Simulated assay, not measured.
Amino acid sequence: MRPRSPGLLLLLLWGLQAESQEEVRAMVGSDVRLRCIHPEENSFDLNDLYVYWQISMAGKGNADSVVTYYLSGNDSTNHSDNHYKDRAQLSLDSMKRGDFSLHLRNITPQDEQKFVCLVFQISLQLKKILEVTVTLHVAANYSMPVVSGPSQDEELTFTCTSTNGYPRPNVYWINKTDNSVLDDALHNSTVSLNARGLYDVVSVLRIGRARRVNVGCCIENVLLHQNLTSGQTETFTGTKDSITEDPIDGSHGGEPRPVLSVLVVLAVIVALALAIGWLCRSRCPPRSYTGAQVARPELALTEHV
């Protein structure tokens, strides 16, 4: 008995329970292999097999779940989900050896699904000989977070931005002085999906004025076990009424700089030199200038007998 259409088989597949489960992680834009291998190293006749890959849509109410399939004399192109057209591929040579793995190219965030591999033997009245569920986790690196600010207001406002990451991140602000995590109530983070299906992050930190502020923004990608911390350190000094960025001298009420101390020392040295010169002129007799003298070698003294 040969199945007339893969759509008729869908009604049968919902009641099947997976015999094994795997989890796979893939980066956006990469290729991935979803394993579905028969436990016995047998040789299979492709004309006697029906290999079917679908997305597990339990609870989603969507019947368009076909990824790809193999059935001798049939083409899966018209029955596959358009999202997987020309991206999902089975290897005929591998299937002959019991390897029914799915090769999926150019991974996107929408590929984060549960994929079900089903293999039936036609001569045994479509007896199921293999079923594997593969959960695909998709990840993408966030850009290095950039901190800007602060704005000049009643309080200090810093803004952190990071783009094109996946999955949804955790956002932290840290005090770089002691690496402590700032209270979540001090910042407000907005995470949104962009046109590529990836996440962009904008986080705004508001804190009271302080003489010195040194903060950083941290973007955590849990799936990649990755923490990205802003490389920019914001250091400011000031009071409640005014704030300036590290003044270079003491003209604005800051403490004297080392340059001023050096100038004072030089002035004292010059004064001492002038005083010594005056004393020398008053006590030492003047010498007449005879011009440059040519250096001549001294003659050795000899004793005449």
Rank of each mutant, 00 (worst) to 15 (best):
residue 194 N to I: 09
residue 99 D to K: 09
residue 224 L to M: 05
residue 206 R to G: 06
residue 87 R to V: 11
residue 214 N to H: 07
residue 92 L to R: 12
residue 151 S to W: 00
residue 146 V to Q: 08
residue 7 G to A: 10
residue 70 Y to C: 03
residue 293 Q to M: 13
residue 215 V to C: 02
residue 173 W to S: 01
residue 79 H to D: 08
residue 36 C to Q: 01
residue 147 V to S: 06
residue 67 V to Q: 00
residue 151 S to I: 04
residue 246 D to T: 05
residue 188 N to E: 08
residue 108 T to N: 07
residue 52 Y to F: 15
residue 287 R to F: 11
residue 101 S to Q: 07
residue 265 V to P: 03
residue 189 S to E: 14
residue 22 E to Q: 03
residue 131 E to L: 03
residue 231 G to C: 00
residue 58 A to L: 14
residue 147 V to Y: 04
residue 148 S to G: 08
residue 176 K to Q: 15
residue 241 D to A: 10
residue 77 T to K: 07
residue 92 L to V: 03
residue 83 H to S: 10
residue 92 L to Y: 12
residue 58 A to C: 06
residue 303 E to Q: 15
residue 8 L to F: 12
residue 53 W to Q: 02
residue 296 R to H: 11
residue 126 L to H: 10
residue 262 V to F: 01
residue 4 R to D: 04
residue 46 L to K: 04
residue 187 H to N: 08
residue 28 V to N: 01
residue 21 Q to S: 05
residue 28 V to A: 00
residue 256 P to S: 12
residue 196 R to F: 13
residue 108 T to R: 15
residue 117 C to V: 14
residue 126 L to G: 09
residue 129 I to D: 06
residue 39 P to N: 01
residue 257 R to L: 09
residue 17 Q to A: 09
residue 234 E to I: 15
residue 111 D to V: 04
residue 217 C to Y: 02
residue 229 T to I: 10
residue 113 Q to M: 14
residue 226 Q to W: 04
residue 163 T to N: 11
residue 1 M to C: 02
residue 187 H to D: 13
residue 255 E to H: 04
residue 84 Y to V: 15
residue 124 L to W: 14
residue 100 F to H: 11
residue 55 I to N: 08
residue 116 V to Y: 05
residue 92 L to S: 12
residue 269 I to K: 07
residue 297 P to L: 08
residue 285 P to L: 02
residue 145 P to I: 04
residue 271 A to M: 00
residue 51 V to W: 02
residue 37 I to N: 12
residue 42 N to H: 12
residue 74 N to C: 13
residue 125 Q to Y: 13
residue 249 D to M: 01
residue 115 F to H: 05
residue 63 A to Q: 10
residue 200 D to E: 06
residue 59 G to F: 01
residue 23 E to S: 15
residue 228 L to K: 12
